[in-house]
Amino acid sequence: MAKPTIPTEEYMLSGHMACLGCGAPLAMRYLLKALGKRTVVSIPACCWAVIPGVFPYTNLKVPLVYTAFEVTGASISGLRAAIDARGIKDVNVVGFAGDGGTADIGIQALSGAVERGENIIYMCYDNEAYMNTGIQRSSLTPFGAWTTTTPVGKTKFWQKTQKKNMVEIMVAHRIPYAATVSVAYPEDFINKVRKAAGIPGPKYIHAFAPCPTGWRMPPEKTIEIARLATDSCVFPIYEVEYGKYKITRKVVNKKPVADYLKMQGRFSHLGEEEMKQIQEYVDREWELLLKKEEFTKEW
């Protein structure tokens, strides 16, 4: 009999409102397993504003403060200020927001919090669109994807921009710690959150969290697709500690991006030409990451 490879204590309960196979609850589940009960979470408008259930119930065994869509960074700054002012010790203050709440409407408050050096952990669970409002594009929706605001139509109106790189934006703030994690790799996920908790100042963790509903794929494929995202270098798993890059999940047999794209209905309209284009983009980004790792090796 093997032993569970992640802590067995649960801080997120069953009975929540997420769709079948949703990656977002897994991100929360792992996050709280890593941090334990002396944690306060702030959540803006996003699927996770609905997932914990309706008033007067909650499915989290930690205090949770809901906030408006664009102010997670400010909310956790205020929580930290109050906790410090009251002399309360050993509390993790965590913001937990979607890709829209992080990279679009909430980027200002996040940038402010990180620039001020607030002692917080910010986790973006990335499902690559505004899912709560019904699958509209965000600046983290990848090139080529169908969403309800980038419909394919007769004019190939699908997403025409490449995904914004939030980790790089955070690194540009000279943040002490930034990392990517994926629900496909819970052990790495938990290790990184724990590491972040031990570092003073702002920490940013970007969690890959597939949305079967919005990605137009069967719910049982969530983990498989997340794994494939990393194996194809679409979503590399790495960390940047005080500027030093480290790829924490080596990719040995790089899988074709087309394998990843073809599993999801949101890319079903793409032809060979576009797939090639995406492959080239992914390759270039991956090369760049390898070079950054190499360049900062001695730091």
């Binding site: 309960l13 069953s14 009975g15 929540h16 409102m17 914990p52 259930g53 008033f55 007067p56 119930y57 909650t58 499915n59 989290l60 065994k61 949770l64």
Partner: peptide
């Protein structure tokens, strides 16, 4: 204010 009493009713 919501208590943990909880979503286990769902």
């Amino acid at each position: 204010y919501c208590h943990l009493e909880s979503t286990l009713i769902n």
